[in-house]
Amino acid sequence: MPAVQNLQQKPARMSIVTFDQWCEAIDTSFLPLAYTRQTRGCFHSNVSYARFGACAVADMDVDAHRVAREPRHVAASDAGFFKIFWQISGQSRVAQRGNEASLEPGMWSIYDTAQPYSIEMPDRCRVLVLLVPQERAFGWRQAAASLGGRALRGEGAARIALSALGAMLHDTCSGHLLDYQGQMVLQDSVVSLVETALQGADTRPPALGDGADAAMARHLGEARMHRLAEFIDAQLHDPELSAQRLAAVLNVSRRTLYNLFRESGQTPHAYILSRRLRQAAVRLSGSADAGRSITEIAFALGFADAAHFSRVFHERFGMSPSQWRQQNAGGTRIALRH
């Protein structure tokens, strides 16, 4: 699979009249796939394609055929992507991870390109397809694992994302290109909108109630908090680690980030500080850092001021860093409060 930067760079409107041209266009603009069709002769497709940021999007009006992401394609991949597939007209049959569904107009689905999947279009139809590198859509990972190949309702945030992408495609293919900042804003907005839609995704009939939706939202929140903790622990040395930095790196909005932390009862700033203080207590107690000064340990954990570190450490543990080190130097461990 080509890296995302090697995909077709220029926006384009294409009218395709052979199946071979269609296969080549998809391999170049998106990802290598296996292609089959039931009939011979002309194959018609009209495509509008554009890039924004690290993402690619296309509006496709296409004849009947089937595509599949096979294990051989996955094995040859050097990067992971998420694909969002909106059904605008006609019908498609989708499958991934044992899930199978029929998409009607107004519905959508998500795929993980690191897993095999298939899409069958039995008749001519129109779809809009979005390709996003997985590192740009950190919050989608858990949802893609459970919802890949399932039919989702195209309402609310999903519909807004579709409208924004359609408008961008029209303007871009008409020669009105977004500048770099505009592309980044659109990319972050679409990623956040789709994440919101995935969190509220309902794949069941309305009569079954909304209990499963609430359970899914809680599960997604817990999984994302675990991944956030791992990321933060790896970046504690960075004094610039902040809510704004987390939102930018994880490609979520500040509102989404704060909502996630609110469920844990903390703000992003308080959570980062708590992880730094916990790690400081561990290092002050251990032999590996016995030769380092308290100030060196504080700076290594992202604290920019030794006095500030001493004050917040005392507030957290009820003693100064030096007292903590003295009381734990002989091997007597004091339980850390979470």
Score class of each variant (00 low, 15 high):
H219T: 13
H219I: 11
H219K: 10
H219P: 02
L220V: 05
L220T: 01
G221M: 07
G221Q: 11
G221H: 07
G221D: 13
E222K: 13
E222Q: 15
E222W: 14
E222Y: 13
A223K: 04
A223D: 12
A223P: 08
A223W: 07
A223T: 12
R224S: 08
R224V: 06
R224Q: 13
R224E: 13
M225V: 03
M225H: 10
M225D: 01
M225Y: 08
M225P: 07
H226R: 12
H226K: 12
H226A: 14
H226W: 07
H226S: 12
H226D: 14
R227G: 05
L228R: 11
L228P: 04
A229C: 15
A229Y: 08
E230Y: 04
E230L: 15
E230Q: 14
E230H: 06
F231Q: 06
F231E: 04
F231S: 08
I232W: 11
I232K: 06
I232P: 10
D233C: 09
D233S: 11
D233L: 10
D233G: 02
A234K: 13
A234I: 10
Q235N: 14
Q235W: 06
Q235P: 05
L236C: 07
L236F: 08
L236N: 03
H237E: 09
H237A: 15
D238E: 07
D238H: 04
D238Y: 00
P239V: 02
P239L: 04
P239N: 03
E240Q: 13
E240I: 03
E240G: 11
L241T: 00
L241H: 00
L241N: 00
L241E: 01
S242G: 01
S242E: 01
S242K: 02
S242R: 00
S242I: 02
A243C: 08
A243L: 07
A243F: 03
Q244W: 02
Q244I: 12
R245D: 03
R245N: 05
R245F: 11
R245M: 12
L246T: 00
L246Y: 00
L246E: 01
A247D: 03
A247L: 09
A247C: 05
A248H: 08
V249I: 14
V249Y: 06
V249R: 06
V249K: 06
V249T: 06
L250Y: 01
L250F: 09
L250Q: 10
N251P: 04
N251C: 15
N251K: 11
V252L: 10
V252P: 01
S253F: 07
S253A: 06
R254I: 07
R254S: 07
R255K: 09
R255M: 12
T256P: 00
T256D: 06
T256W: 04
L257Y: 01
L257P: 00
Y258H: 10
Y258D: 15
N259E: 11
L260H: 08
F261Y: 09
F261W: 06
F261V: 03
R262I: 00
R262S: 10
R262W: 03
R262E: 08
